[in-house]
């Protein structure tokens, strides 16, 4: 019950912010403007999230959404007002995590629907399986959880934007550099790799997300609010 209340407070807090516009608008724009030529692609291609999305937009988008969301607390001095309420810190932490997971999920859903509609309009060749599309997008979403967990942790732990922004962008650059030789260490590109090798990247993603959520939770509970 407490978690539901805190989660609903998160949505209220997001009113009149660019969070929803970015989460819903960007994937919509991506799906429209990255319309492929029907001569070159078939349903195999459009059954997965667009590579532009998983490679670039998603990792950077998570950094931006995480920063915007956490900064609403920091820049308005709202951590102290929130944390003196009769609600546990872990509940506040999970509500915030759940909120960010939700808006990223909404982005995936919009992109998926956009890609399906465009594929149908273009009359792509190959067999279309709704189950395959959903599972592919969902796998990619699950593989983005470590990035979300990291941004939630750093955004809640640090007042300024420097640490979360550096970690997010630095991590993405680092992952890009490692993606060929050591893909298992390229956390920011797991959403791209997971669709082709789910047996490897799904357990890694979920395990890493679990560890980052736990570390973030402990850090948030122990944090002094000045």
């Amino acid at each position: 019950m407490q978690l539901l209340r805190a989660y609903s407070a998160e949505w209220l807090r997001a009113k009149r912010t660019p969070l929803l516009f970015l989460a819903l608008g960007v994937p919509l724009i991506i799906s429209i403007f990255s319309t492929p030529s029907p001569k070159h692609v078939n349903w195999d291609f459009l059954s997965n999230p667009s590579p532009g999305w998983t490679f670039f937009i998603l990792p950077i988008g998570i950094v931006i959404l995480g920063l915007l969301s956490a900064q609403l607390y920091s820049s308005n001095h709202m951590w102290k007002s929130t944390l003196i309420q009769p609600i546990s810190r872990s509940t506040i932490y999970f509500a915030h995590l759940l909120f960010l997971c939700s808006i990223v999920l909404l982005g995936f859903i919009v992109l998926m629907i956009g890609q399906i509609i465009i594929g149908k309009i273009l009359g792509l060749k190959g067999s279309f399986s709704f189950f395959r599309v959903i599972s592919s997008f969902f796998l990619s979403y699950l593989a983005s959880l470590p990035m979300i967990a990291l941004q939630v942790w750093l955004g809640m732990r640090y007042k300024g934007i420097t640490v979360p922004l550096t970690a997010g962008l630095g991590g993405w650059i680092f992952s890009t550099a490692l993606s060929n030789q050591l893909p298992s260490f390229a956390m920011w590109h797991y959403p791209l790799f997971v669709t082709s090798q789910p047996a490897i990247f799904l357990p890694i993603s979920l395990g890493l997300a679990f560890i980052l959520i736990l570390v973030g939770l402990i850090s948030f509970i122990r944090m002094d609010v000045h």
Binding site: R5, S8, A9, T17, N76, M78, S81, I87
Partner: peptide, 24 residues
């Protein structure tokens, strides 16, 4: 606590709603 705190992008009423939700 020290400085006044409220979400600047929300109305006064919405800020109070936020606290109402947390306090049930």
């Amino acid at each position: 606590v020290e400085t006044p705190s409220a979400f600047g992008h929300l109305s006064g009423k919405d800020n109070l709603k936020y606290i109402c939700k947390l306090r049930n």
